[in-house]
Amino acid sequence: MPLLKEETRQQQSKLAEYCKTGIVPELNGIIEENLHHYRRLVFNIGIDTIETAYPITYRFLPDEIWDKLVYEFYAEHKCQTPQVWRMPLEFYDYCVEKDIQGKLNLPFLNDLLYFEWLELEMHTMEDIPYPSYDTKGDLLKNLLAINPEHKLVKFTYPVHVLAATELEGKEGNYFLLMYREKESGRIQFMDVSILYAYILEQIQNGLTLHAVLTDADSLFQINNFEMLKEHALVFINDLKQRQFILGFLNK
């Protein structure tokens, strides 16, 4: 038998629901004029957290739309994470699930929110052990060691390149490489073409650059391996200089 009586549980539940929705409940023995402080304090924490996580979207959306969105999120959604800094991911998931971008006729909204979340996630995500690697080797024939703290993301809108006001009508295939620098923890962003995204993905899957380029040459109907190799090596050397490509994997 539960130790907490149903009546007590209900009182707690009503207060919590009030904090989420702002709809004043019937509670026993309260100081009515002070009740609103709880709604204000709870709501402010939520709204501050979301606005800090999504500064671009917050500035882009008109105030009345943003306020309504955050209000509805807080009222309808049950936040699951005990860590408030992870809560903005639930806000993104909520917007996707409720098709907010469709309702607002902003087809790039999901991409924009996800881009903003990724920046936060990349900055805070748990450390991933670096692979063991040598600094000397053959870029084409040896397996390349890459910074494990990265994400290669596909967007339908170039939210990482253009301002939110310029995204309309820019539908396409866009790829973003994000990685966290080991020492500084800074996040680096790199817009990459579909070809280079493919190359990076296959290197990540454990293929040598030579094997990847051989596949890419036919897959992308380039049919000029030497030219592809020349361009790809410029790209790979650039990534090596940026220390995204660390070196050559130890066998």
């Binding site: 009586k5 207060l15 919590a16 939520g46």
Partner: peptide, 22 residues
């Protein structure tokens, strides 16, 4: 947290005997 929703602020517990036991 209440009804499976985190609120990220501190709400007052009813000062009641059953709450004490709980």
């Amino acid at each position: 947290k209440c009804d499976n929703a985190h609120l990220y602020d501190l709400l007052p517990i009813p000062f009641r005997k059953d709450a004490v036991k709980h």
